[in-house]
Design a protein around this nucleic acid. Sequence first.
DNA 1: GCCGTTTTCGGCCCGACTGTTTTCAGTCG
Length: 574
Amino acid sequence: MRNMEIAWVFYEIADLLEFKGEEFFKIRAYRRAARAIAGLDRPVKELYAGGALKEVPGLGKNIIAKIGELLDSGECRLHKELKEEIPASLTEMMSLPGLGPKRARLIYEQLGITTVTELDKAARAGKIRELPGMGAKIEQELVRNISRMKKQARRLPLGAARELALALHEYLEQMVKVEAVTVTGDIRRWAELVDSIDLLAVVRNPDDAAEILDAFLLHPGLGEATWRDKDRVQAVSRWGVPVELIAVPREQYWFTLLWSTGSEQHFRRLQMTAWRQGWRLDRFGMVSRRDRQTAPVSSEEDIYRLLGLQYVAPELRENYGEINAAARGELPRLLELADIRGDLHVHTDWSDGACSIEEMVQQAREKGYSYLAITDHSTSLKIARGLSRERLLAQHEKIRELNKKWEDFYVLTGVEVDILADGSLDHPDEVLARVDLVIASIHSGFKQDKDRITRRILAAIENDHVDIIGHPTGRLLGHREPYAVDVEEIIEAAARHNKVLEINASPDRLDLSEFYVQLARESGVPVAINTDAHDRRRLDEMVYGVSVARRAWLEPSHVLNTLPLPDLLRVLRK
DNA sequence: GCCGTTTTCGGCCCGACTGTTTTCAGTCG
């Protein structure tokens, strides 16, 4: 069993216990354990065998025993019993905003409702308001949230989609008759929401395609095939989005890769370009219209070159003008992960992070960064154990001590200071003035109207000590709408006051989104791409933030944390 | 559930907001 699968079991146990009304701390212990497992960088199996699991914070005797059960038999008794007792669809119901364990249980026990669809029907029929403690407003809110949930049910946030695609990739790779596998489609273009998980396999022998498709469908995450062709199959999946596999011979690979990567509009534009130049381009190949000769191609670059175009990175293939730019040789020198020299927004165990400052720094050094800013939460964010002024200053003392250790790495003192509901900041100016890097973010009062919430952020931008506005719209992909902020106005103000906007790279956020990042670029506002990591593993999520920047056509010069340390410090001290 | 250089039991997580209520329960970050 892979680490993620084991973590998943514990998350599910926590959800089910929550429904049962179990004690809060027990539920939290399971969630913590799940998070700890998901964050391990070695296989659980290995650590278990070596007796090293008990060293992992959050894993105790009971949970380790359950991990043992899972490794031995693929299941554990508690999980199995809970699943038999409680319909799984109830946890989906509980994911609706406003519907926690108590209300879900009430609805289940009083009305026998177990699915979102039944709940929708009951709410529309006015049955929910009749329950004790419920009313018309809650009922309406449920109807609204259900319709929103249904609308986006078939689209998966990029991070989750990519995890699943990689698991399927691994599965296919083990097949003897498969020569190579690539994840393609929306995921290869790094689209923030994914309509379909697409994979492309190269078969050693064209006659084996059908057999490979059959074997693919045996994957436990996949259901019935919804559609099938000689070399393609689409199936429903456990995760709500369709999954598609295409199996092609080697000589067809580059063309099918180009076609399946899309976007549809980009490929159509390429077809038109090809036609005008005497080629016929489709997913099977590119053939001269004059002599029926197939174009000699051994990469995607070759195809673009034959069409007189610069190579277009998958992230740009949205028909937003990239083909014209490629024809003129004017595509940007896109930002790459390797251009990033440090992460400017991370949390440690001083507030709600899981790792120590040293561990985060160690990981950042291993990634080849030359700096890292420690930006724990501020006083008001009690749930995250936000740092009081005294603890913040103590932390900075510790960081200064730590910095004596290296010549080639620098830890910036920092803070993620809350923008409070009235627009003031959660630390006084004289504290902020002593900090290398100040990120100001909103963590409360999400429901304020556009005017109020925009004015709050504007006030933060106008504060001389603030360097970066963190996750500027507050959205959680697929979970929470952005707050009502007027982003255009924020961008204009940032331009006036020389402030930096964050691309929060957490795949749950991707905030700012690519559209606004593009607007920021056009307005001359630099961005900082930060992971907001709460444990060292999640420093790896930088790649998601980079993908947003690439999709917005950003070059290294648009990004604050591509600067070498001395330049960065000069900018921050200005 | 986990955790412990004071503790093997008793902490661990707190406050705002909302909607339902006549003084509070449930949800959320």
